[in-house]
């Protein structure tokens, strides 16, 4: 079927079934908007949590009596681990100085106290590589910590075990439930879109029957409907992107104005080019599939003759 004929059919549908077409487009656009919104929120939440996760660090405290060779061995083991992002050595003196500086405002005499005994051990401060998922921080720290067990001279390994474990569990649950919600929404949207397209095509049942009567083949009859479904899906997906982009701009503005202290705005991102393209293509595919399955049910080659009976 020629593209020209498909476009003419699309124009005719809008001219002669304006109400029905508008209703279908609205339902499609509303459904896609909700799905895109959930995807966007889920993605941004993940970004935000990952950002917070980057500040998680592990402290490997060394014994005061650790031999330089053993200390270097600890560093080598940590640095050779692909899951480790950075390793920084904090000497006893540096730890003390940092403590005094932090406490200066609360206890000014502390800075000048020459008899202050240094209670802090030297340590390695370890952060994780950026590709470690936020939901896996706890188990990664645990694994790295376990790898240090055979080494000599380590007094303790701390990474806020309880907090990190809870954080990881929260992120993992959020990620799983996010996908579940998206899955339910997509299934629901396919159902809604299918019903909407079905209502629209059923209203034009006569057209299908008459085309059958004059000898149109199944592909000739179905192609314009599938094309129309794809175009409707594409337009609806574009509308949903536009609505979500508007919401994104408002969200960023709000966060900058009212919640600037939280510094969350930079973590909020709109769909990139590939994701936007994916949403547009998915919209077109859902529209085309809805139209195909509906028109296939009506156009079995004999529907016109059934009406004649």
């Amino acid at each position: 079927m020629r593209l020209n004929e498909c476009l003419r059919g699309f124009r005719r549908s809008w001219v002669h079934h304006t109400g029905m077409q508008l209703a279908t487009l609205s339902v499609l656009a509303a459904t896609f908007t909700v799905v895109a919104f959930v995807l966007s929120v889920s993605s941004n939440l993940k970004n935000l949590l990952s950002h917070w996760g980057e500040s998680a660090r592990m402290s490997v405290y060394l014994e005061d009596s650790i031999a330089p060779g053993d200390r270097n061995k600890v560093r080598e083991v940590l640095q050779s681990d692909a899951r480790v992002g950075s390793v920084e050595y904090i000497a006893k003196e540096k730890a003390t100085a940092a403590f005094k500086e932090k406490m200066a405002s609360h206890a000014p005499d502390l800075l000048a106290d020459s008899e202050f005994a240094n209670p802090f051990p030297a340590s390695y401060q370890v952060t994780l590589a950026k590709d470690v998922p936020a939901g896996k921080i706890a188990e990664t720290f645990e694994a790295i910590s376990a790898g240090l067990d055979p080494l000599k001279g380590i007094e303790d390994v701390l990474y806020g075990q309880s907090w990190v474990r809870n954080y990881s569990a929260f992120v993992a649950a959020l990620s799983a439930s996010g996908w579940l919600i998206v899955l339910i929404l997509v299934a629901g949207s396919v159902f809604v879109v299918g019903n909407s397209v079905r209502a629209s095509i059923s209203a034009r049942r006569d057209e299908i029957e008459i085309l059958e009567l004059v000898g149109a083949t199944q592909s000739m009859i179905r192609a314009p409907f599938v094309f129309e479904g794809a175009l409707m899906g594409l337009v609806a997906a574009a509308v949903s992107l536009a609505v979500n982009f508007g919401f994104h701009l408002w969200e960023v503005k709000l966060l900058r104005a009212s919640l600037a202290f939280a510094r969350m705005a930079p973590d909020l991102a709109f769909f990139g080019f590939a994701a936007s393209l994916g949403i547009l293509v998915s919209g077109a595919l859902v529209g085309a599939a809805g139209a195909y399955f509906t028109v296939r049910r009506i156009n079995d080659g004999w529907s016109a003759s059934q009406r004649v009976a």
């Binding site: 005719r12 549908s13 001219v15 002669h16 079934h17 006569d206 057209e207 029957e209 008459i210 059958e212 009567l213 004059v214 000898g215 149109a216 083949t217 199944q218 080659g301 004649v308």
Partner: peptide
Amino acid sequence: IAHFRRRIGVVFQDFRLLKG
């Protein structure tokens, strides 16, 4: 059957014209 229908002409009592 589709090809056969292209070879004949059929007229119905209720016309069966495309309204649009």
